[in-house]
Simulated scan of single mutants.
Amino acid sequence: MQKVQAVIARSEGAPVETVTIQVPDPGPGEAVVKILTCGVCHTDVHYRDGGINDEFPFLLGHEASGVVEAVGADVTEVAPGDSVVLNWRAVCGECRACKRGEPKYCFATLNATQKMTLEDGTELSPALGIGAFAEKTLVAAGQCTKVDPDARPAAVGLLGCGVMAGIGASINTGGATRGKSVAVIGCGGVGVAAVAGAALSGASPVIAVDLDAKKLEAAKALGATHVVDSSTTDPVEAIKEICAATYEGAEGADIVVEAVGRPETWKQAFYARDLAGRLVLVGVPTPDMKVPDLPLIDVFGRGGALMSSWYGDCLPSRDFPMLVDLYRQGRLDLDAFVTEEIGLDDVEAAFDRMRTGDVLRSVVVL
C-alpha cells in the first residue's frame, strides 16, 4: 500500500480537492503506474457534476501517460519500467464482441479489481476505471498500452481519450479516406482531433465549423482546408457549397462529425451530409437531451448512416503505437493540442478555462 497525492470530486458540483489517497499493491492482472502527465478532459467535469453517475467520491483524471512501477501475478502485457499510455478499453477477450472478432466494441472491458481509497478507507470511483490525477494509480494491466519512451509524455498521453476519440471518429467510425469530404461541427479538443484525423486520412475538403475564431484557427493549423464561422454563416449551406465546388453534384459532406453533443448541432450535421453520407456523433450529450424531430422521409430518403463513436472505435493496442509513430515522424502534431502544463492543484481552474474555450488541453504534469 502506498500513499500519494490525488485530485478527487467529493460531492456533486463541489470544487475538486487535492488529498492523500491509498493505492494498493497490484494483485493478479493489475499494475501500479507512476503518472507522468494527465490531460484535463470534459469527461472529468461530467464526473464532478454528477453527469456520469452518483458513485462519489470520484478519483478524477483518465487521459494519462506514465511508467509501470509494479505488476501483479499473471501479468504479461507490461513490465516495470515500460512507458505507457493508459486506456479505458482493456479488452476482455470473452464477451460477444470479442468472440466475433470485434474487440474495438468490447462490452466488458477490464478494470482493476482492488479499490483505491481515502485515508479513512472510503472507496474511490476512478474516472473511466483509471483515476490519473494522481501521483500513482492502480489499473488493470490491459489498460496499459506500451509506447515509444522517447515520445513527449504530455503529448502522447492525450491519445488516452480526447485525441483518440476525435481521430477515430473520422477514420475508424466515419471511414474518412481519399476521395471523401469531411465536415466537423465543434472544434474543441475532440473536434480538432477529428479534423486532424480527416486530414491524416487524405480526405478533402476538410471543413471545420465553430462559433469561436480561435478554435477555427486551431482547426486550420491541424489540417482544415476550409473554416466556417457558424455565428455568422449557416453551416449547413456553407458545407454544401464547399463540397459542391469540389465534387460536382455533391449535396453535402460524405462524413459529418458532430463533436458538440447537442440536438441543434446534431440536426445541422444530419442535413449537412451528402446522399448516403455518414453522421458521426462523438460529442457527449447530457442525459436529458433528445434526438430532434425529423421527418422520417428525410431519414429514409437521404440514406447513409447515423452513427455514434465510442472512444473513436479504437483498439488501443493497435492505434496508440501507430499514432505515436506518426507523431514521431512529424505527420501528426500532438504537441499542438497541449495548450498549457499545470500542477495537480490547478485542475479546478483548468475546468474553468476549458469552459470558456481558452484551451484545447490543459495537461497536469507530475
Rank of each mutant, 00 (worst) to 15 (best):
K3H: 12
A9M: 11
A9E: 06
R10K: 15
R10S: 14
S11W: 07
T18M: 15
V19A: 07
T20A: 14
V23N: 03
D25M: 10
P28M: 09
E30W: 11
C38L: 05
V40P: 12
C41H: 08
C41T: 07
T43M: 06
N53H: 13
L59S: 10
L60S: 12
G66Y: 01
E69C: 04
A70F: 04
V71K: 02
A73R: 14
T76R: 14
E77W: 02
D82S: 12
L86G: 07
C92I: 09
E94V: 10
E94K: 14
C98V: 06
C98F: 07
R100P: 00
G101S: 08
K104H: 14
K104C: 05
F107D: 10
A112T: 10
A112Q: 08
T113I: 12
K115V: 07
K115A: 15
T117I: 11
T122W: 08
T122I: 09
S125G: 00
S125R: 12
P126D: 10
G129W: 06
I130N: 09
G131Y: 06
L138H: 09
Q143K: 11
Q143W: 06
K146R: 15
D150Q: 13
R152I: 03
A154N: 10
A155L: 11
G157T: 00
L158Q: 02
A165C: 10
G166A: 04
G168A: 05
G175Q: 06
R178C: 01
G179Y: 07
S181A: 12
V184C: 06
G191H: 03
A196T: 03
L200D: 01
G202V: 02
G202K: 04
A203D: 00
I207G: 03
D210P: 05
L211E: 01
D212L: 14
K214V: 10
K214S: 11
E217A: 14
A218H: 14
V228D: 02
S231C: 01
P235C: 04
E237A: 14
K240N: 02
E241V: 07
A244E: 11
A245F: 00
T246W: 02
E248V: 13
D254T: 04
I255T: 00
V256I: 05
V257M: 00
A259Y: 02
A259C: 05
G261N: 04
P263F: 08
E264Q: 11
Q268I: 00
A272V: 03
D274I: 01
A276P: 00
L281G: 01
V282T: 14
V284L: 13
V291L: 10
V291D: 00
P292E: 01
L294D: 00
L296C: 09
G301E: 04
G303Q: 07
A305K: 12
M307D: 02
S308I: 10
G312I: 01
D313L: 14
D313C: 13
R318E: 12
D319H: 13
F320M: 08
D325H: 15
L326K: 15
Y327P: 10
Y327R: 12
L334P: 09
D335S: 08
T339L: 11
E341Q: 15
E341H: 09
E341R: 15
G343W: 08
L344E: 03
D345G: 14
D346E: 15
D346M: 06
D352T: 07
V359F: 11
V363Y: 08
V363R: 05
V365W: 04
L366C: 07
L366W: 11
